[in-house]
């Protein structure tokens, strides 16, 4: 619970600045006439208020305002603009270059796949067919024992040592074209 003295002490500065209501101001005025402690405090405050700070001048205040505004302007974060961000020239050029490189890479890889593997396969199949015909002919007519470990290359080289026409065209259902009994 505050005493009246403490309450008035807290109001002294409002009294000095003239912000108290008339009723409260009259109360403070009455208290000051009988309280030396509060009267001394008011005297000190009045003496302090007489010390006036030097005026820095209107030029300083105007420059201060300009400086603060320009600093605020410089520190304001710029708003994000999606269209400006997307249509910046450097990223567009970089993206176009990247797309071109990707396209050329895919195009060249496609050409490579379409040409080389087919040529190899055709040659291999032809060779394999020739080899198969040779093996069938000899197992049925000459009863040679096929070496299962032989590779296509080995068999092909064997084929090349025989008469090619004979080996290739004479096998039709186990009969030989040169066989006399067939012609009859």
């Amino acid at each position: 619970m505050k005493s009246e003295h403490d309450e008035i002490k807290d109001m002294l500065h409002e009294y000095l600045h003239g912000t108290l209501s008339d009723e409260k101001a009259a109360l403070v005025k009455g208290h000051l006439s009988g309280c030396d402690d509060c009267a001394h405090e008011v005297n000190i405050a009045v003496a302090l208020l007489k010390i006036v700070a030097p005026d820095p001048g209107a030029v300083y205040f105007n420059n201060l305002t300009k400086t603060v505004l320009s600093t605020a302007r410089a520190n304001t974060p710029k708003k994000f603009n999606l269209w400006k961000y997307i249509f910046r020239p450097i990223p567009i050029a970089a993206a176009a270059s990247l797309c071109l490189v990707i396209y050329l890479t895919i195009f060249n890889l496609g050409n490579f796949r379409n040409s080389h593997p087919k040529q190899v396969q055709i040659a291999s199949n032809t060779q394999n067919n020739i080899t198969r015909n040779y093996v069938t002919h000899h197992t049925q007519n000459t009863n040679i024992v096929m070496d299962t470990s032989a590779t296509d290359d080995t068999l092909y080289s064997l084929l090349m040592e025989e008469d090619y026409d004979d080996g290739f065209t004479s096998v039709y259902g186990g009969y030989d074209h040169d066989d006399d009994s067939y012609e009859e």
Partner: peptide, 12 residues
């Protein structure tokens, strides 16, 4: 505390 109370008239 003196500057704010005396010169600026601020409350406690």
């Amino acid at each position: 505390s003196v500057i704010l109370r005396v010169y600026k008239g601020l409350s406690i």
